[in-house]
């Protein structure tokens, strides 16, 4: 269970970091007596204007995504070996179909999940990094310039 404890405290730590980053960003941009001065002093630790906003925003993202993922992990993995705590084991709930535990079917299922995820990540990368050249590529793809 050390893994669960580590995951749990990682989740709590990042949640605190995310909360603090959100508070600093908020009072950095919206003036409040005392708090804004403190927020500005903290933000200045990260360098110039562009850099401090980027780092605080990054901490905010990490402070929301990591607790969300770790929360699921702690709850779902931490419940093992039960599926319904104290009542039912996974082996009692699995579909009583031989195909569901067949290596071929499992390989197929994992392949589909993996392919969909890799395809999704690749598409997100393409969308995030490439310029939108629809009209140019439309003409190229349609052969207008050929």
């Amino acid at each position: 269970m050390p893994l669960i404890y580590t995951a749990y405290y990682t989740k709590v730590t990042f949640a605190i970091v995310g909360g603090l980053a959100a508070a600093v960003l908020f009072f950095y941009f919206y003036r409040a007596p005392g708090l804004s001065a403190l927020a500005t002093a903290i933000a200045r630790l990260f360098g110039d204007e562009r850099r401090r906003v980027f780092i605080l925003a990054l901490l905010l993202v990490l402070g929301t995504v990591i607790p969300a993922v770790m929360g699921w992990y702690v709850r779902e993995v931490g419940r093992k070996p039960w599926t319904v705590y104290g009542l039912l084991y996974p082996s009692e709930l699995v579909t009583p179909v031989p195909y569901s535990t067949d290596p071929g079917f499992l390989a197929f299922a994992y392949f589909v999940v993996l392919a969909v995820n890799l395809g999704g990540f690749f598409a997100i990368y393409i969308v995030a990094t490439r310029e939108y050249k629809f009209l140019e590529l439309l003409k190229k793809g349609a052969g207008v310039s050929q």
Binding site: V112, I126, K133, F134, L135
Partner: peptide
Amino acid sequence: ASIMIRIPAIAISWYTWGKIHP
């Protein structure tokens, strides 16, 4: 499995249109 493939494929088709080779 078909649903799992189709829905992301729709999103990938739409958002990569004009950004990858035809």
